[in-house]
Amino acid sequence: MPGAPAAGEMLQQLINAIVFGSVLTLFALGLSLAWGTLDVLNLAHGAVFIFAGYLTYELTRQGALSFVPALIVSMVGAGAATVALEVLAFRFIRTRFANKRQAELSMLVASIGGAIIIDQVVSNETGATTFGPPSSIFKVREYHLTGSAGITNIQILIVVVAVLAAVGLDQWVRRSRQGRAVRAVAYDPVTSGLLGVNVSFVAISTMFVAGALAGLAGVLLAVNLRAEEVAVGQDYLLTAFAILIVGGVGSVRGAVLAAYLIAIAETAVVAYGPTQWRDGIAFLLILLVLLVRPQGLFAKAQFQRA
């Protein structure tokens, strides 16, 4: 009997961790894809993520669209924003700089510029304050499990979508011929081009997929959190770096594993440890991994970097 509430809490925290891990997975997948294939460390990923939440807010607050159409439009919008960065910046940098390191650094800086522009647009439109889609677009309901534990329908949706997206991306990259083209471009863009792979189109579509994944995460999180602001994207970006490093750059499976690992670790700290140290956990994991296994937990990267 005395153990009952504690067990309920424990179950609840486990659910919390899984939901959190799912959001992180969705966020990290796109970042990992862009970095692993095109060597673009896209610091605008967090801004795109918030941009999608903002689009949903704009599309739904006057009741113009319901949840699913708004989700789709927002994902396309997020994908388009990322493609715009690719077309307007990354592509030129890639051809301008023969030196890979220089190109990577330039793209990093360009993506920061992109993040600032997107953030500024959202800030201006929202008056730089808190925003969120109306609660009417998605009726959040809680299903009670044993004890005090429960899970809401949006949380279930997040977990299901994250698993589907992760499995889908993994299979796509591993199995499909387009995935093969993506891997080929990741390994050696010049040879791929000579073999008939349209490198610039693969780059554009990969960035679109990466952006749309950020958008998917952004919309689901906006509904789950109810309120967002521009800075939220930055927070996720930092945790996502931790995920990429812990999981191994470019590995879908590694990213998923690392996302849930970090989520569980952070939730455990909140539940049973000094809560304010939660953010430190991610960086502690980065340090440990860098010391013990610098190539990440999943060393054999799928979309390998040369």
Binding site: W172, S176, R177, Q178, G179, R180, A181, V182, R183, A184, A186, Y187, D188, T191, S192, L195, G196, V197, N198, F201, V202, I204, S205, T206, V209, A301, Q302, F303, Q304
Partner: peptide, 23 residues
């Protein structure tokens, strides 16, 4: 491409036409 099997490497050549249409 060291990240793929030999067959996949060769398939990369075989699929050239289609891949242009993208993911």
């Amino acid at each position: 491409l060291r990240t793929m099997s030999v067959l996949e490497n060769v398939m990369l050549g075989a699929q050239a036409e289609w891949v242009r249409r993208g993911p």
